[in-house]
């Protein structure tokens, strides 16, 4: 292990940072799956599909910000913008999977 320790790190409880990040990932991935199902049912294609995902993600971020982080994300995350950006790209892949699945089942098959 190299000797790169930042004294500022002593201010934070590492375990809680990791726990919060894990909770955030859980929320995002389950919600991305549901968003994918909804997009497939609606029959969205191309750009509207991706726009739907980002709008849905933003809606989830505001919900988390208001309900879970009680409007002060700095107490729970290192950078207050983490609430809005964490796990979004990871959720995109499962969104695409479920979007394709439902789109195929409802709009392409007989």
């Amino acid at each position: 292990m190299s000797g790169q320790l930042n004294p500022e790190d002593a201010l934070y409880v590492d375990m809680f940072i990791a726990k919060n990040s894990q909770t955030m990932t859980f929320i995002r991935s389950s919600y991305s799956a549901i968003l994918g199902l909804a997009a497939g049912i609606l029959g969205l294609t191309n750009w509207s599909g991706f726009v739907f995902y980002f709008v849905g993600s933003a809606f989830l971020s505001t919900l988390v910000f208001l309900v879970k982080a009680k409007a002060s994300p700095g107490t729970y995350f290192r950078s207050p913008f983490d609430v809005f950006t964490e796990g979004v790209l990871g959720g995109l892949l499962s969104y695409i999977l479920f979007w394709t699945l439902l789109y195929g089942i409802i709009h392409v098959y007989d």
Binding site: T25, F26, S30, A33, G90, S94
Partner: peptide, 8 residues
């Protein structure tokens, strides 16, 4: 796509 499902 199933990576996050497995995590769940």
């Amino acid at each position: 796509g199933l990576q996050s499902v497995f995590t769940l």
